[in-house]
Nucleic acid binder design. Sequence first.
DNA 1: GGCCGGAATGTGAACGTTCACAATTCGGAT
DNA 2: ATCCGAATTGTGAACGTTCACATTCCGGCC
Lengths: 357, 357
Amino acid sequence: MQDRPDYDRGMDRVKATARESVPGRAVMHDVARLAGVSHQTVSRVINGHPNVRDATRERVLKAMRQLDYRPNALARGLATRRSRTIGVLGFDAELYGPSSTLLGIQRAAQEQQYAITVVTLSEKDTTGSVDRAVGMLAEQSVEGVIVIAPSSAAAHAVRDLPRGLPVLALEASFGRDMRVVVVDQYNGARLATRHLLDLGHRTVWHIAGPSDWPEALQRMEGWRAALDDAGVPAPPTLTGDWSARSGYEAGRRLAAIPGVTAVFVANDQMALGVLHALNEAEIDVPGQVSVVGFDDMPEAEYFVPALTTVRQDFNEVGRCGLRTMLDMIDGSDVASETRVSPTLIVRASSDRPPAVD
Amino acid sequence: MQDRPDYDRGMDRVKATARESVPGRAVMHDVARLAGVSHQTVSRVINGHPNVRDATRERVLKAMRQLDYRPNALARGLATRRSRTIGVLGFDAELYGPSSTLLGIQRAAQEQQYAITVVTLSEKDTTGSVDRAVGMLAEQSVEGVIVIAPSSAAAHAVRDLPRGLPVLALEASFGRDMRVVVVDQYNGARLATRHLLDLGHRTVWHIAGPSDWPEALQRMEGWRAALDDAGVPAPPTLTGDWSARSGYEAGRRLAAIPGVTAVFVANDQMALGVLHALNEAEIDVPGQVSVVGFDDMPEAEYFVPALTTVRQDFNEVGRCGLRTMLDMIDGSDVASETRVSPTLIVRASSDRPPAVD
DNA sequence: GGCCGGAATGTGAACGTTCACAATTCGGAT
DNA sequence: ATCCGAATTGTGAACGTTCACATTCCGGCC
């Protein structure tokens, strides 16, 4: 013990100090020592294993409390090969729909003690960003991936995901066999269009979302179907990018077309733009033109005028998505498609068409 | 080797199979074997350690590509004691500000190859939710915590966080010595109020946010300071909860008060509600009453009328917050407060007061 | 009173990395 | 030729859990 030169022993001290400079968090072993049991018993208590004597359990719990012990999720994930983390493949935009869906997922995950890792795909730079996104997800060893994004961008990404990983798409239908949770966009759009026709409009115009978003397509189909049912020819569609700005531009074009009395807009943000454009053109809503949106964002009720729209329960989609994902993970078989129904909310922006002179 | 009974060896086979039922991801050892080097050399290549011969590096990289190898973040985090994860303590609400700040953090984190774990505090059930939130953060062994939430709720949580953990507050100032990134709300509010006074309004009313949000307080102070500077007495304030609905209610009350010609509303969503209420009361904006908001959400430009407001660059706050956090983590000293400046955006909702008869 | 079986506990080896240090190789200067 | 020191590579032990299995304890039964 005494045969080492002093400087050498000094080094040891320095190193030891550097290692555990701060007391750091207590680990399972510390708890075990304090409670006078083995680490395995501590583990059993944590995981609620039945075969632990009550007295022992108490001692361990007390020690845990005393040391403010927290199990280390990293170590646990490594040993158990379950990270308790779900990856979300999102889209880099401030859209009401996707972001509230994310919130729903987030809430549900928190309840289930799962963590969420969000990775976003940027619109441009598709190839690089997809690689990196998939890479991150794979490295984090997520237990599953929930996709909230237009298929065009995400389809690539999904292909590259490690195989065997559960994948769930929200609001989209990829060709692959993949579970899906969706709002019934088609019927929502029908509802909206039908509402306008029922009010007496000769036809209904449509401002659609970007064609690479499945939602946009389905809403368009629903609109068209409602017109077909009524035996009304479909006017040409205008297309926006979901933003209020693009809605405004479409609205301006619409304002220049004579005879337009009703518009079904594919989301509320664009509908706001349309209202703005019509107001600017001194066209009265709903006196001269009726406008119906889609989503029912919280602000829609306070647009001027209050917007008639189709409510989607994004929060529910998110919750439901997470629940489904968890089912997929522990192998319960799940319905391959879950539908959430939208409802029509009638407010002040839709009314009967102006009397024809 | 042959001295074990057959059934025993059989058992082994079964277990082995169960263990590696799926080929699973390649691990470092597999790469090492394929490249004919030790696992440590592979590690060196991954981490860009300099002392690796070019030829060796190439062989390793090739093996990695061939096996589609991904380092396991869990194992890495465990060994290195750095999780490359930042915790975000958020607030469970669909507010424009916080959620775009989060988006900014998220974007910046992704660039830096950091993961984000979001934990939200729900408004009610404060005690329980705080415990759980802090617990999750601690278990995930985050390297730091960014707080985006009103101080009242978050203050508790912050206190319980493991000590030694870097904490950064966005848009808030806790008493503790804690780094902060803020938009200069005070001056933003002054700008807005001043703008209205400059237009000739005798005074400016204010609809404030909830009093436990620091932003709300600072905006109110800025408003009051501007009035003081002009030697104008401050009318009583109304208070909302950031939502369009609460803005609408405040707007209705305001509409009933004679002589109001200018209102500064603490955020755009409430301002929308105010516009709606005024429109309903057939009060012309900006003809009879001018309205100025705060935030400049993308929709504000398309309100009816287009909203004059104060722009905050939330995205920048988020980015800046993450950058600061990373600096804190690797010990660079950082300014204890970083300010981002807001700018006034004048649109159609503000104008000169109506001529007095 | 010994023995049996289940409950309760302990032991050592994973999990997939990085760290600390030891061993080997290599190019040149002696 | 020989040896030195730096560059390169390898070895074994962490990191903090859980898993598989071994061991001990204990009550009751023949």
